[in-house]
Design a protein around this nucleic acid. Structure first.
Length: 646
RNA sequence: GCUGGAGUAGCUCAGCCCGGUAGAGCAGCCGCCUUGUAAGCGGCCGGUCGCAGGUUCGAAUCCUGUCUCCAGCUCCA
């Protein structure tokens, strides 16, 4: 808990004590986090951060990163240290070392860190000039680069714990007064390493200096730090939980999809159970698109090189495309996007302003050449299906159309109980085509639409598509991770390139504007997120098997089949488990398969024409009439309810 | 693409360090059992140890190359 107190000329330590803060690590003064040793001006309101505050944890993690660097420098003479910021749930530090770290190295480093924590070295701040900095870090090229950056006012590394308006460093001084370690750092830090209560190194991996793949690759060590052993244990448990929800693992266990080496990396095979869920999801998408005035189309998987030249893809997107297929009469490419085909459908006849907005939609499967290290299950694949639409409209209609798209998105996501949770507005990138005026118009339309829709958003400068700025929308899954799904883009370029026109109300030829939008984004990725979000326990309308009949003994099997028929007649997906397993084993199996409803039938049920309903939660109701259950289940499914209603 | 780690039965894993031609549990199949809310019992089947070379009398085990997967970086729906 943060506590506040008014400064009276004493330092943060005294104020924290006065305020009764337990485990103080830093103070917030005038919106800035400061060391406890800092003396705030009298009358200032000071907030004392403790180790259990999120901002306090950040300080602890940052300090732990320094301890990591000290341990590495001790154990690996000649190592160069680069940057070591706190991150969500932990920290990392990047090093240049002769050999990459092995798991055994991490154990050694961790022991060394424990010794440093035990020694309870003080963190001492000093503000220095550039010259002093250069002298201190004379043999540390990465530190020198940061010093130059601060001198030039480059604040790119601000987030990474270095940089800022003044150059400062932190010394670790052990109780005997000896300086054990010094690092260029903006701070703040905990008073002493003894404040670090619980930490663990997690893994090492390569990382490019400043995230730039043309720069040297450094060795990064990731770790986590918490205010107590319990908090650390809880975090490690959360990591295990995330692993348990991994869609690749659940997909295999529930027989939803698989990948085979013979097919190629990043291209999934959909098994019957996965396919039925996918069809349910696609059915939702199709229903809502029709309801909102979109016209369905189908377009091919390949198109001639000429088409991709006209669209600009060969010039701007070829690295992401599968290689050319040579063929007599013209080479072909597998489509990485659906837009050029939709454009040609639009252009197939003269269009009137009365037709606009003209909305084409397709579940279009595209193929993209993802770099080998990027492929990741369904969340990053080389073949994926977009719920793709292109809206052709007049410039005046753009804002309203964007607002309508956002409304659509909300309806769609609500059907599965998810986001939108984070919205990004991405502006003109370096490889952009088109005029500045067009980009300005497109960007202002997006901004207006976002405001009208009441969405909070963050701006990502230079992150737009080559043909237009975009809105990207992320959802947050059950354990707090964010995934980018939806993308909405405003495009003046393709209409130009393909010479699109409409006739306005005065008979003049005008150029329409295009909106590209995919709400699920990719069915595959959305599906993967959905699996992780629900940990495989889909809402009933999506479940591969919605109800399983479990006869207690063989003599109940025919009654079970009769009851099952009453459900399947209503279009429900139902199975009868007439295996020779015991009832307990049957229940266990269906429970692991995450079937929403198990209907147990024995002598009592058979006599009364009822079923005993066992929910996935374990809750049970006996004596439910088959007819009532069938009716209720059909309603739950047809209304696509996220929560069970029976 | 880059850095590190890993590939043994459908799945989870042992065997590898210290070469002597593969083993468990679950799943599957067959049989017995006829069951009241998360694993009944017995039997059987199942692997050219990712792939290709090399070293050796002999390679799952040692060496080289390659593919795939995992974590991270970069890039993206």
């Amino acid at each position: 808990m943060t506590v506040s107190i008014t400064a009276d000329g004493r330092d943060g330590f005294a104020l924290a004590k006065e305020a009764g803060a337990s485990g103080p690590v830093a103070a917030v003064v005038g919106g800035k986090v400061r060391d406890l040793a800092h003396v705030p001006a009298s009358g200032e309101t000071v907030e004392i951060l403790t180790q259990a505050d999120e901002a306090g944890r950040e300080v602890v993690r940052h300090s732990t990163a320094h301890v990591l660097a000290q341990a590495v420098l001790r154990l690996y003479p000649g190592a160069r240290y680069a940057i070591g910021p706190p991150i969500d749930d932990g920290f990392y530090y990047d090093f240049e070392v002769a050999d990459p770290f092995t798991p055994e190295d991490l154990d050694r480093i961790e022991s060394e860190m424990r010794a440093i924590v035990k020694a309870n070295q003080r963190f001492e701040r000093a503000e220095i000039s550039s010259e002093e900095g250069v002298a201190t870090f004379v043999d540390q090229p990465y530190k020198l680069e940061i010093i130059r950056g601060v001198a030039e006012g480059v604040d790119a590394l601000e987030q990474q714990g270095a940089g800022g308006e003044v150059l400062s460093l932190y010394r670790n001084v052990d109780p005997s007064g000896h300086t054990a370690f010094v690092d260029l750092c903006r701070g703040p830090h905990v008073p002493g390493t003894g404040r670090i209560k619980a930490f663990k190194l997690l893994r090492s991996a390569g990382a490019y200096w400043r995230g730039d793949e043309t720069k040297p690759m450094l060795q990064r060590i990731y770790g986590t730090a918490w205010e107590s052993k319990d908090a650390l244990a809880a975090y490690l448990h959360r990591l295990e939980e995330a692993e348990r929800r991994d869609h690749r693992r659940i997909g295999r266990e529930l027989e939803l999809y698989s990948w085979e080496e013979e097919v190629g990396p990043g291209i999934a095979l959909w098994h019957p159970k996965g396919a039925i869920v996918r069809q349910a999801l696609e059915g939702l998408s199709r229903d809502l698109h029709l309801k909102r005035g979109y016209k369905p189309v189908y377009t091919p998987h390949i198109g001639k090189a000429k088409l991709w030249e006209s669209s600009g893809h060969l010039d701007h997107f070829q690295d992401n495309m599968f290689p050319r297929m040579e063929y007599e009469g013209g080479d072909y490419f597998a489509k990485p996007m659906n837009c050029p085909f939709h454009v040609l459908i639009y252009r197939s006849k003269t269009r009137s302003y009365r037709e606009l907005p003209y909305r084409l939609s397709e579940l279009g499967t595209v193929y993209r050449n993802e770099r080998s290290g990027a492929v990741h299950g369904l969340l990053r694949s080389r073949g994926f299906t977009q719920d793709d639409s292109h809206i052709f409209c007049t410039p005046d209609q753009v804002v309203d159309e964007l607002v309508e798209v956002v409304d659509f998105l909300r309806e769609l996501y609500a059907a599965v109980g998810m986001g939108p949770d984070a919205v990004r507005f991405s502006t003109k990138p370096d490889n952009a085509i088109g005029t500045q005026e067009q980009w300005d118009l497109a960007e202002s339309a997006i901004e207006q639409a976002l405001q009208k829709s009441g969405l909070d958003f963050r701006v990502d400068e230079g992150d737009g598509a080559f043909y237009g700025p975009k809105i990207d929308i992320d959802v947050r899954d059950a354990i707090g991770r964010y995934w980018q799904l939806c993308t909405i883009q405003v495009d003046f370029q393709l209409p130009d390139r393909f010479g699109l026109q409409y006739i306005d109300d005065e008979g003049h030829r005008r150029r329409p504007v295009m909106i590209h939008r995919a709400l699920f984004g990719s069915i595959e990725r959305f599906f993967g997120v959905l699996v992780e979000h629900f940990a495989g326990a889909f809402p009933t309308w999506l479940s591969p098997v919605q109800a399983a009949l479990i006869p207690i003994a063989d003599r109940h099997a025919s009654y079970a089949y009769a009851a099952a028929r009453k459900l399947s007649e209503r279009g429900l997906r139902v199975e009868v488990d007439d295996s020779s397993d015991t009832m307990g084993a049957k229940i266990r199996r269906r429970q692991l398969e995450k079937v929403p409803y198990m209907l147990i039938v024995g002598d009592d049920e058979q006599a009364a024409e009822t079923v005993s309903v066992r929910r996935r939660s374990g809750k049970e109701t006996r004596g439910v009439s088959v007819g009532d259950f069938a009716r209720d289940l059909e309603l739950e499914v047809s209304e696509r309810r996220v929560e069970p209603s029976i």
